[in-house]
Amino acid sequence: MLARIAGLFERYGVIVAFLVLLVWNAVFAESAADFRRPENLRNILNQNAATGIVAVGMTLVIVAGGIDLAVGSVMALCGAVALVVANALALRGFGETSCVIAGLFAGLATGIACGTVNGLLVTLGRLPAFIATLGGLVGYRSITLALADAGEIRAAKTDLLGAIGRGGIPVIPSTWMESGRTLTFTWNIILFFVVAIVGQVLLSRTRYGRHLVAVGGNETAARYSAVAVDRVRLIAFVLVGLCSAIAGLMQTARMASVSSSQLGLQMELDAIAAVVIGGTSMAGGKGRIWGTVLGLLILAIINNMLVMSAVSSHWHGAVKGMIIVLAVLIQRSRRA
């Protein structure tokens, strides 16, 4: 009996942790009334949507027994390339819509290209994923710095970008809101949900998903079962590159600019933290997207709580570090 409860906790502990945090903040905490405000809940989702999208991609790579440290740098490079392309076209007299569309496609292509390079280094080059993407982490950031002369790239035309980055679907009409302003779910949030659902379906309902788990769980066995191990891994890296591009472009659209040194900085750590809290094994072969989403929300709520309650920022890291370690301790397999 006890073993069964322990087993349930190991599997679903992250749900319990999420609910405890949510209820605590929304009902019992000193700033509960502020936490519950629809604007605040929307902000939490909006602020973490980019990290969430990256974390979904990261989950796939980690399930396949890899890791991608380059995600943050890829985000910055994709944003920078998008704006460079859009600005160059704007200078040649193209309309705003075509500039932005071309920029977005250039950004997405950059993400796919970076993912492909990382994937090829791991598969063809036989480099450990940690090393290959460590090179990417340093290298892609450096290219971004060079593109922007270490400063900022700004969009020449900002109207459409602003509409993408800040716009969304209205969900609560202004008359129902205390602030008197319509509450919108931003495109960022919607994209995050879409990516998360696609990721979950991909991982748990498709043949590719089963192959990912097989490759991460036991590479040799997968190879003997005629799984194209290298192709499965390569695609995982391309997917995380694509996710990084989407996340980077979303943040670029919102700020209508790219800070070459800041965009996506330390994103790899936030994404890996969400994945690990969500119960995905760093050893590969076991993972779940919904866990990652909850892991992300746990970190997001804690962050919000720390700012709300005016805890000195010096202590934020200590709290987050403790949560990460605790979450993994709770979910650690007891049968080992």
């Binding site: 700033s31 502020d34 405000r37 604007e39 605040n40 902000n43 602020q47 943040q251 700020m255 800070s259 800041q262 965009l263 919000n304 700012v307 709300m308």
Partner: peptide, 16 residues
């Protein structure tokens, strides 16, 4: 000292 981070904490403080 970061625009994005300042945007995020300011959003929270504005709600509060």
């Amino acid at each position: 000292w970061n625009r994005q981070k300042a945007l995020e904490v300011m959003e929270t403080l504005l709600v509060k």
